[in-house]
Amino acid sequence: MSNKTITFKILRQDGPNQPSYWETFVIPYLPNSNVISCLMDIQKNPINAEGKKVRPVVWECNCLEEVCGTCTMVINGKTRQSCSALIDKLMQPITLQPLSKFPVVRDLAVDRSRMFEALKRVKAWVPMDGYHDLGPGDKILPDHQGVAYKLSECMTCGCCVEACPQYSRDNNFLGAAAISQARLFNMHPTGKLIANERLDTLMDDGGIAACGNAQNCVEVCPKSIPLTESIAEMGRQSSKRFWKTLFQI
């Protein structure tokens, strides 16, 4: 057993609208740890650095392989998933904070409903009705699939909007993730049946015009989704729709 330890400084909050406070935990070092495995170790022995028994830290996680996005938090000042945040690659003390753009539920758990609402606003789905046999769908070419696959990797984790200077708690900006999903479903052979409805949302308040082109989103996206390309592409589609509507063609 080595004497190596890992020190965490965690911004905690007992509930919404409660004051937040920092708490330090020092736990034994284990090789190949990540932030979640350490939070689990704290659960097994919830004692803070002052030796006081406290409530275990609350956070959310699910897949543990960076495909669900649930465990996103701000780690050493950077928004990312805690499952793939490897301890050996982090400076200590490791600071953990909840995402700042969403209401805190408790400790590191936040309410990301706004992102889900944004997906609903842009109708991020393929419209289908009934379960009867509709026959084979349209063929999708490999080039098209390559672009769509990348866009489909979005896990609504919230990194892009956390890093975005235009996305704030007091506006209604859709954010890069939802704009990129509008692009994905506008590409889909069946999804494009309601492409114009998506574009109308993007041209409305809180839509594409709210983007300030800071390009932080693409910088922090854990899945390297070309978010700025998506925003540009949706800008092009929106402009086209605008002129076509104006001249009624």
């Binding site: 509930g15 659960q43 409530r55 275990p56 609350v58 408790r106």
Partner: peptide, 8 residues
């Protein structure tokens, strides 16, 4: 180990 009533 936690007996609070909110998101516990």
């Amino acid at each position: 180990v936690d007996t609070s009533d909110w998101t516990n």
